[in-house]
Simulated scan of single mutants.
Amino acid sequence: MAVSSLRIQQVDGDAMLRDWQHVHNTIIPSHVLSLDEVRERSGRHRLTVAYLGDVLVGCSTVRPPADGTSTATVISRVLPDHRRQGIGTRLYERELAEARALGADVIETVVLASNEDGLRFAHSQGFAETDRYLLPGDSVPYIDLRLV
């Protein structure tokens, strides 16, 4: 199916929350989120899901600037079977524009260290690593990156 049929929508309702949850939990198996946790996140962040036709292919998160900063976090996730088709680029560019519209001058992202495709994508978009850390109980670090 052509990427031109890509549909990106802001999460609205439990079905889309579950789709966002599925993508997140597939890509970040070390930090599985419950539906209630996803619902809570949707109140603080802008969550979107991406479909190629009717097939779920990805999701994104925009954490808007907060506390007087101009820094936003943009996270785009594409399910492994749908990578390297331009979906991540379309999703990222849309969410980057959203972050800028929300007043962000500085853009950051975060990638699980075991997600080599995600790291490669972030670097190809101009992000550079700023930090690595482990969440309590985790064995795989997260990598914070900033757009340079």
Rank of each mutant, 00 (worst) to 15 (best):
E129W: 14
E93A: 07
H123L: 00
E93K: 05
N115H: 08
N115P: 09
R132K: 08
R94V: 11
V110A: 09
A101R: 15
D105H: 11
L134N: 03
L119M: 13
G103I: 06
L135F: 10
R94N: 00
A122L: 04
R94G: 09
E98F: 10
I107A: 00
E116G: 14
R94L: 08
F127C: 06
R132S: 01
E129H: 12
R94K: 09
A122R: 03
R94A: 09
A99W: 00
F121K: 02
A128M: 14
A101H: 09
D131N: 15
T109P: 01
V110S: 08
F127Y: 11
T109F: 07
R120F: 04
V111T: 14
A97R: 01
F121N: 01
Y133M: 10
D117Q: 07
I107Y: 01
A99F: 03
Y92T: 01
L135Q: 05
E116A: 14
E98N: 11
S114T: 09
A99L: 02
E98T: 10
E98C: 09
E116L: 10
R94Y: 07
A113C: 13
V111M: 06
L102V: 15
L96T: 02
T109H: 03
A99N: 03
A97F: 00
A104T: 05
V106Q: 04
R120H: 01
V106A: 11
A97C: 02
L135T: 07
E98P: 07
E108N: 13
L102S: 13
H123F: 02
F127H: 06
A104N: 08
V111D: 08
V111I: 15
E95N: 02
Y92A: 01
R100M: 11
R132E: 04
A104E: 00
T109G: 03
L112H: 12
R100N: 15
R132G: 01
Y92E: 06
D105I: 05
N115R: 06
T109M: 02
D131H: 13
T109C: 02
V106S: 03
F127I: 13
D131K: 15
G126I: 10
G126P: 09
G103P: 06
L96Y: 08
E95G: 07
T130G: 10
D105C: 09
T130Y: 14
F121T: 03
R100A: 12
A101L: 05
L112E: 14
E95P: 07
A101P: 09
L96W: 04
T130I: 15
L135E: 03
G118Y: 05
H123G: 00
L119R: 09
R132C: 03
E93F: 08
Y133S: 12
D117C: 07
A104L: 01
S114N: 05
S114Q: 07
E116Y: 14
E95K: 08
E129P: 14
H123M: 02
E95D: 06
R120D: 07
G126M: 07
Y133W: 13
G118W: 04
F121L: 00
D131R: 11
N115T: 11
